[in-house]
Nucleic acid binder design. Structure first.
Length: 596
RNA sequence: GCGCCGGUAGCUCAGUUGGACAGAGCACCGGAUUUCUAAUCCGGCGGUCGGAGGUUCGAGUCCUCCCCGGCGCGCCA
């Protein structure tokens, strides 16, 4: 399945050049899908802008292009409307042909629904999730984890090589008290460091902190542990390593549950590169000493007094901080991983840090012209009352608890449904648990990803678990329903011959077919703009189109449609819808259900 | 003080390098069910897009100023 806007855009561009020669070279035809079906399916908006440059009337410019453009195999004759819009209406026959050409699913690989990969794959490093290992993962890590996963999935789908880098916090002074606390509570840790087990990481951290504050001898030991750690003392390193391993295992329980894959790479990995970073920046005159600290000063950054704002890369006590680590990591991703696109899925409050980091990397020449550096910032997750998200007791909410509650709530909905004689499906308790897991985690992810990245959003259980509206349950239901129709019709969708014609006649068939054709454009836009909600909006549109297609009153019959050619055509539409939904949800990191 | 991000329907949110009368869900009102999964569908109600200027053929979108909210601003990450 190819992008229609690209196809139409190519032809319009040719017609523009045929009509206006060099003056039209490089002019974007501005092709997009229309908002209102009365304007057709796609529109080209270049005429107003081009007319201005040419000193001509927009409608005349549009008319000249319409005269030259050949789209008769795709559309009705293009129409000029308003100030100079050119409207294209895809013919049902052309839409049917394009859908029919989508190859069938192949076993064992991700169904691409006929969408080609990028001919020029990039190596991309995505900085995502990145919790601090000293503590348990909390809700603050949710957005980076699932947004990063979604963007990684989309870019991987496009054929790029993606490193999902989990830049975990495994270094710093707080590990001193952790190490000391491990020693005291698990005295035999060194005998078997791989099998250190901690039931509650958060409680462990809190207790370590309490001891540190309450017991001077503990505090001294903790400080000594920091020194030993930095000095490379083997025994201290072993304890530290054992703790980090255990903490990572806790993280991966959640990653597995959320079906998120990451490459763990702790900050400590870059430790022996830090001195070199500072040395080189200093030698080349990009960094200078200020109040005892080594600082990089960059144009355009000032502090509250209006003085230039430093990026501190070595503290006055000789220690390094996150700016140094991030610079080292950036270099490593470019030079060692070969990445040409570095993405950072980190909250908006850190925007200034990334602005400075990128500016410094450019200045030092570590990131050249050909390297993209992008901070994919996102807003905060707020409670339903609009405040910062906190547990009832006031502390942070563990991510694990959030996921548990989501699944539990989904399970209750399913149980209630099974109690209702009109709704019950006769699910086993095992099936109910499996469905609740997909619906619960899917609901949380979908709700998050359906918001535009930049804005804060209010976390609301009832909305995200609602069957109505732009939610995971609605989408999952639409998918399950289509799969059920296939079973009821006694067909294996995958076995319907690929040459079976798809004929779009009824309005709801035409609408569904044309919506299906938008999928490549949607994925393309989501990838280009790093915007998951482009995908969710589309899935909602597709689900609505399908539900209308299948509606008792306004839709068409499928299972018992006749003649057989119409029945098969509609079953293929069902199949393509299911495949598109499955692919879209997969790119969001959400699994599908054959039944719910 | 400087900077960043927000302010769109009663509520929660979309709005694609500026494009056609500003969209959706929830809520509310009304309609459709001898069920191919109604966990659905259709219709109605509802907005001077925070305010004021400006640029433009055209502004929710760009520029300036102001109001309100959140966040950041030298050795935490």
């Amino acid at each position: 399945m190819q992008s229609i806007t690209r196809e139409l855009g190519r032809r319009v561009t040719e017609a523009m050049i045929a009509g206006f020669g060099d003056q039209a070279v490089g002019v974007d035809p501005l092709l997009k899908s229309t908002q209102d079906p009365s304007f057709g399916d796609y529109q080209a908006n270049f005429a107003m802008g081009l007319a201005k440059r040419l000193g001509r009337r927009p409608r005349d410019v549009a008319a000249a292009v319409v005269e030259k453009v050949d789209v008769s195999d795709l559309c009705d004759p293009p129409e000029i409307a308003g100030p100079g819009f050119i409207n294209f209406t895809i013919t049902p026959a052309a839409a049917g042909r394009r859908l029919q050409a989508v190859p069938p699913t192949a076993d064992g690989v991700t169904d691409r629904v006929g969408i080609a990969q990028s001919p020029s794959p990039d190596v991309i490093a995505i900085d995502m999730s990145s919790p601090n290992l000293a503590k348990e993962m909390h809700v603050g890590h949710l957005r980076s984890t699932i947004i990063g996963d979604c963007i990684a999935r989309v870019l991987e789908f496009e054929g790029h090589v993606v490193h999902r880098i989990n830049h975990v916090g495994d270094w710093g002074t707080q590990f001193g008290m952790i190490i000391e606390h491990v020693r005291r509570t698990h005295p035999h840790v060194l005998d078997d460091p791989e099998h250190l087990q901690l039931g509650d990481l958060e409680a462990f951290y809190v207790e370590a902190r309490r001891q540190f504050d309450a017991d001077p001898r503990f505090a001294d030991a903790a400080r000594k542990a920091v020194v030993d750690l930095q000095g490379g003392d083997p025994e201290t390193l072993a304890v530290w390593k054992a703790f980090c391993g255990e903490s990572l295992r806790h993280c991966h329980v959640i990653y597995d549950r959320l079906d998120v894959r990451v490459e763990d790479r702790g900050e400590s990995f870059y430790n022996d590169m830090l001195a070199g970073v500072v040395q080189e920046l200093g030698d080349r005159g990009f960094a200078e000493e200020s109040d005892g600290a080594m600082c990089v000063f960059l144009d355009g950054f000032t502090n509250k007094q209006g003085d230039r704002l430093p990026m501190i890369i070595r503290k006055s006590d000789g220690g390094y901080n996150y700016a140094t680590t991030d610079l080292a990591a950036l270099r490593h991703r470019i030079s060692a991983l070969g990445a040409t696109r570095l993405l950072y899925v980190v909250g908006i409050p850190q925007k200034q840090h990334f602005d400075m980091l990128f500016a410094a990397a450019r200045k030092a020449g570590w990131a050249g012209e050909g390297v993209e550096l992008t901070h994919i910032g996102f807003g905060s997750m707020l409670s339903s009352t609009g405040k910062m998200f906190k547990a009832r007791e006031g502390g942070t909410v563990k991510l694990r608890d959030l996921v548990d509650e989501a699944v539990e709530r989904a399970h209750k909905v399913i149980e209630a449904s099974e109690q209702d004689p009109d709704k019950r499906r006769g699910l086993s308790s095992g099936q109910m648990r499996a469905i609740a897991e997909t619906v619960g985690t899917g609901a949380v992810k979908y709700f998050d990803l359906s918001h535009s990245l930049g804005s804060d959003y209010r976390f609301d259980w009832d909305t995200m678990l609602s069957m109505d509206g732009n939610t995971a349950p609605y989408m999952l239901y639409a998918y399950a329903r289509i799969r059920s129709i296939g079973r009821e019709a006694g067909v294996d969708y995958a076995a319907i011959p690929a040459e079976t014609p798809i004929v779009l006649e009824h309005d709801c068939e035409i609408r569904l077919g044309k919506t299906l054709l938008k999928l490549p454009d949607v994925i393309d836009q989501a990838a280009r703009e790093y915007r998951p909600n482009v995908l969710t909006d589309y899935l909602f549109e597709l689900s609505k189109a399908y539900n209308l297609f299948y509606d008792r009153k306004r839709g068409v019959r499928v299972k018992d449609a006749s003649p057989e050619s119409v029945r098969l055509s509609r079953l293929r539409l069902c199949d393509l819808t299911a495949r598109s939904l499955k692919l879209g949800l997969h790119l969001l990191g959400i699994g599908t259900l054959e039944q719910m």
